[in-house]
Write a protein that binds this DNA or RNA. Structure first.
Length: 754
DNA sequence: TTCAGAAGGATTTTT
DNA sequence: TCCTTCTGAA
């Protein structure tokens, strides 16, 4: 592509931004104004001007997805390059730097990266060591407080200085213990990655010089989402050349919960004197209706400078709002509409929701109708137990001081190393200031533990030595060997359940991924890093026209039609945000959601929704954001099974008929249930025994129903706890006496009702 | 030490 | 409902 071509795709302000030569630049861009396009083109343009610069450009994003997309686009704009620009997330950049210089900040280069799941384990261990009870000091809360403190740049000492309550003192102790534990394990968490990099750059002038000299151009996407450590990182990197280009939109700041500080963008011009400010206000994505709606909602926020987006595509289709009596009905309506859209040949549809758990209802509905979809987020491949276990073996083989991985796999599969043994080992470790691996060798050498435990530990120690010896192999082979010799696979094979089979398949898949990575020339370390930093995106069907994801995940993307579902008070805005008085961020989230749409928005909410497997007893109120939409842009649609009424509690001048009388209350449970506690099995069994076998309305005699009994060829007779319809098959949850609860696919398990 | 069953608590949002 | 933790029996 020639130079002129590149620029001819752009409007005037975009062109100015792309061709800006030296010095700091701040691009304030609205939704759909070609923000990403502008920085992508800028990168391409810089390289066109001077190909030698390519490797000295650094572009930082927040998500892997954004980084991948940007990299792909830059490459497509340019002829093949010798050096390519570095496009990556803050975290992967930090890992890159730290792998080289970790020892300067007190870690070894083979440090382990702990994800949230690992972190939880660490807290559990610490709580046990410190004799703390989760009930008295909820670990969840402590984790978030500590993470927030870290993201403010505080260590345990600073935190203690600012302590406000009794709890804070305990938290400071946990904080201190946690950091020391992690350091002893040569492990870092996500927060540490950035913090340590900042510390490194701050304290070591040569390193700072090296990076800030090398990267001549720095570009940061979504600057409004940077938190303090990320800000510090950028400051350090731009010490020599202030060729920094930040792109952001104050209205799209939705990461306050992890410390994103909107002030970073507001003070940019002060931080970098001589900043060139460019505003992109023309929207290329959406219709005027959509922009007006989104603008009207976000206008209710007090803390914003305010801007008006405009578009050349006037008018547009009204927003449709559907009020469903139940979540199932809501999903059904969404599917109807999706089928309609697909019928017209639309290809980019998205169902957006506030919290991940909402995906289930929609997945089920889509699957039943055989509509292919793609789910982004949720439980990813890399966070499955078996995958994490397998990776923990590798990590421990590389980094023998990694206590986190040690604890994860020392008795996985069960090899006779129980709680007591581990507690003793941990005592030895803490008394002599050793990590668990060292404590293990010591205990073996000096026979500190009783015979049986000693033998079990001996075997484990030999196993780890063997694993370490496999490290010379290509790492997919190494992984394969480890899974065999550790007995991990054997244990799963012996289990013989369907779940175990799936786990085995996942392990095969992991080996495939590893093989591909190793053939690409990746090192084992980089393979593990990638796995740790990629906590997202599970793509079930990459070609599917329908995408399901959270609003947060949707940032930066666009779709022709969107469905913003679950617009209920308490869900969106989330209850927590309402309590903590932070509805403005939720509103920005709403803005982000609405502005993803190019042509058409569907909104919906359900008056009834199941939480924790239980129906909400009160009728849900519509989200306040619905009330903030200009009525003339919205067209209300009702469920046929529901007739509109009026609600006297609200001013009916807005939302003409959306506030309807409460749904008929769920009938209180019959008295007969009252004496049955959930777990008193006998009485439940008695109760179930007295139920007619086909207790479900519409069930055929001989059909498998909840509360009935079934026969399984291998496990024998069991009680049906739950039947989930999946179209052709059903997922049946059965309790087999003595075998526990199993989940089976009906046709596969050949269940027979008795 | 291990396992099944009982009990109780949990759902923001991302790297 | 689903997941983790606790408890007691083998």
């Amino acid at each position: 592509m020639s130079h002129a071509d590149l620029l001819s795709d752009l409007n005037e302000p975009q062109r100015q931004a792309v061709t800006h030569r030296e010095g700091p630049m701040l691009i304030l861009a609205g939704a759909g104004s070609g923000k990403t396009r502008t920085i992508t083109y800028r990168i391409a343009h810089l390289i066109q001007q001077d190909p030698a610069l390519a490797g000295r450009i650094l572009a930082v994003t927040f998500t892997n997805k954004a980084a991948e997309e940007m990299k792909g686009r830059v490459i497509s704009l340019l002829p093949p390059l010798q050096a390519s620009p570095l496009v990556c997330t803050f975290h992967s950049f930090a890992v890159r730097v730290l792998r080289r210089y970790a020892q300067r900040v007190g870690y070894r280069a083979d440090f382990t990266i702990c994800d949230t799941d690992d972190q939880k384990r660490v807290y559990r261990t610490i709580y046990r060591e410190m004799g703390l009870k989760d009930k008295e000091l909820p670990a969840r809360m402590v984790r978030s407080v500590i993470s927030r403190a870290k993201n403010q740049g505080w260590g345990p000492r600073e935190f203690l200085k600012n302590a406000r309550s009794m709890d804070d003192e305990d938290i400071a102790r946990v904080f201190d213990h946690y950091q020391r534990y992690m350091q002893a394990s040569n492990a870092v968490d996500f927060d540490d990655l950035i913090l340590l990099t900042v510390k490194l750059l701050r304290q070591h002038e040569d390193v700072r010089f090296r990076y800030s000299d090398w990267f001549r151009f720095l570009l940061i996407d979504e600057y409004q989402d940077t938190n303090k450590p990320q800000y510090d990182l950028i400051r350090n990197l731009t010490e020599l050349h202030s060729n920094v280009c930040a792109v952001g939109d104050e209205d799209q700041s939705i990461y306050g919960f992890r410390g994103a500080d909107i002030n970073n963008i507001l003070r940019f011009e002060k931080d970098y004197p001589g900043t060139r400010l460019i505003k992109l206000e023309q929207n290329y994505r959406s219709t005027q209706v959509i922009l007006d709606a989104a603008g009207a909602v976000v206008a209710n926020n007090l803390s914003r400078k305010g801007k008006t987006l405009w578009t050349e595509s006037k008018g547009g289709r009204k927003i449709e709002l559907f009020v469903a009596p139940s979540a199932k009905n809501e999903a059904g309506w969404v599917c109807d509409k999706i089928e309609e859209c697909l019928g017209w040949g639309e290809e980019h549809l998205a169902v957006l929701y506030r919290t991940n758990f909402m995906s289930r209802e929609f997945e089920e509905a889509l699957r039943q109708r055989r509509i292919p979809y793609r789910l982004v987020g949720g439980v990813s491949f890399y966070s499955r137990k078996e995958v994490k276990d397998a990776l923990a073996y590798l990590r421990l083989a590389i980094n023998r001081s990694d206590n986190v991985s040690f604890l994860r796999i020392v008795n996985e599969p069960a090899r006779g190393i129980g709680r007591t043994t581990l507690e003793r080992l941990q005592k030895i470790a803490s008394r002599r200031d050793l990590n668990l691996g060292e404590a293990l060798s010591l205990a073996l050498r000096e026979h500190l533990l009783p015979g049986r435990a000693h033998k079990a530990l001996q075997r484990f120690s030999e196993l780890m030595d063997e694993c370490e010896s496999h490290l010379d192999l290509a790492f997919h082979l190494c992984l394969d060997k480890i899974l065999e010799s550790s007995g991990y696979r054997t244990a799963l094979r012996e289990e013989g359940t369907e779940e175990a089979d799936n786990r085995l398949l996942n392990l095969d898949e992991l080996i495939n991924v590893a093989r591909e990575a190793s053939q690409r020339g990746a090192t084992m370390q980089s393979f593990l890093d990638e796995a740790a930093l990629r906590a997202d995106t599970d793509e079930y069907d990459a070609k599917a026209a329908v995408t399901l994801m959270t609003l947060h995940n949707a940032k930066g993307l666009e779709f022709s039609t969107i469905f913003l579902v679950g617009c209920e008070e308490g869900l969106f805005p989330h209850q927590r945000a309402i309590q903590e008085n932070d509805v403005e961020e939720e509103r920005r989230l709403c803005y982000v959601g609405l502005t993803r749409a190019q042509r058409k928005i569907h909104l919906s909410y359900s008056r009834m929704r199941r939480f924790f497997g239980r129906d909400s007893h009160e009728s849900n109120q519509p989200s306040r954001f619905l009330n903030e939409l200009p009525t003339e842009l919205v067209e209300a649609v009702h469920s046929p099974s529901w007739s509109p009424g009026s609600d006297h509690r609200r001013d009916s001048s807005f939302l003409p008929s959306w506030n309807e009388p409460p749904v008929v209350q769920r009938r209180p449970q019959p008295k007969a249930f009252a004496g049955i506690t959930r777990n008193s099995k006998k009485s439940v069994q008695q109760f179930l025994d007295n139920l007619p076998r086909t207790s479900k309305p519409g069930a055929q005699p001989g059909q498998i129903v909840k509360g009935g009994t079934v026969e399984h060829p291998k496990y024998g007779r069991g009680r049906v706890l739950h039947v989930q319809d999946m179209g052709k098959d059903s997922k049946v949850t059965v309790q087999f006496p003595g075998l526990g609860i199993k989940k089976l696919i009906q046709s596969y398990a050949r269940l027979r009702p008795v």
